[in-house]
Design a protein around this nucleic acid. Structure first.
Lengths: 191, 191
DNA sequence: TTTGGCATGTAATCCGTTACATGATTAG
DNA sequence: CTAATCATGTAACGGATTACATGCCAAA
């Protein structure tokens, strides 16, 4: 019954270094944003719970800068993370509004659907470009921390999905063009 | 602020024929289950709200069979659906526990991660086989209702994603095998 | 000086699942 | 007779987003 993945995301990110709630949010958005997200409304309360359970330690920082609280993972925290990592990962049940609209497509015009697909096409393109840039940066950074191989795998996952999505979108736009032509035979050979 | 996609799923499915809440749930699981899901806890209350808003009409069926309520979409309901279909589809923000575990992979052993990937590999394989079977059935059924082209597009989306996922999984299992070999050089050339 | 980023949090609300509860019908 | 399936619903809970609220500091 308990899953609370927020907990493990925070523990996982804290294995690298002590961080504040704000920093954690930034890192989630920037680094694992392509397959995970958390909001402040989850992060801050969860950090308090983690501290109450002694899985992290809170250290108020008051030196010079305005106050912020850094959280450090404890040994118990690392043990809890390790335990979770061993559990089978939950299967993903995706929910796609785009596919829903396509499935009900006969209730609207192919033009409308093509518009939706073009929106997603653009998004997928810039998403893919972004991931590829990150991967290049990672490869270019000489040091190569031990985690780099794992990070790269998640990047490759995003890229593979984006490419598959793109070619499906192109195929579907073509299909819809055919349907649009069928639906308006009176306009002749245009479009 | 209002999205309430349940509403539109129900309206969309009711464009084909009047159905009961139970039937709607079956259909969601079987037909659009690969990209959408709803639970009874959402369906039944939502049907009542739809009826209250005159977007569907409830007809209690008592003839012979045990009572059930069939819902029929109204013209207002069709108009509402059409309006929604024109709105841009929400971008999908995926959440993948598998990628999360991989990203934090340096905190556990490559063997654990390979196990997770193998689980997902099996699931993806049977998922793909299922979609391909449905697509074949659809192609084989002579009549071809006007919606068939739209249905097929959603099937092709699922297949494209499953294939991309499979080849990424294979690649990642290989990568992890390399990491496992690096981590245990003392055992020699085994494994 | 005012805008934007750093920083932290709470409250309201909604979305969604699961558990609970009930009962009829039908096939074995 | 009894198990499975049809059929409908509510209640409780938990997961998650959004809005609200505050205030400092640095740069333009």
């Amino acid at each position: 019954m308990k899953k609370n993945r927020t907990r493990y995301v925070l523990l996982g990110l804290l294995t690298e270094a002590p961080k504040s709630g704000y920093q954690l949010k930034q890192e989630i958005d920037e680094v694992i944003g392509h397959f995970w997200n958390e909001s402040y409304g989850q992060i801050y309360p969860e950090l308090q719970r983690l501290a109450a359970d002694d899985l992290v330690e809170a250290h108020a920082e008051a030196n010079g800068r305005r106050g912020r609280t850094l959280y450090t993972i404890t040994n118990a925290g690392r043990a809890e993370l390790d335990e979770w990592l061993r559990l089978p990962a939950e299967p993903e049940h995706r929910r796609s509004e785009l596919l829903l609209k396509l499935y009900f497509g006969s209730n609207t015009s192919p033009e409308v659907l093509r518009g939706h697909l073009r929106d997603f096409r653009e998004r997928a393109l810039s998403f893919l470009a972004m991931l590829e840039a990150v991967e290049r940066d990672l490869a270019a950074s000489g040091e190569m921390p031990p985690q780099a191989a794992y990070w790269r795998m998640t990047l490759r996952a995003g890229e593979a999905m984006a490419r598959a999505r793109l070619s499906w979108i192109d195929e579907s736009i073509d299909t819809l063009s055919g349907l649009a032509a069928d639906a308006t035979p009176a306009t002749g050979s245009d479009e």
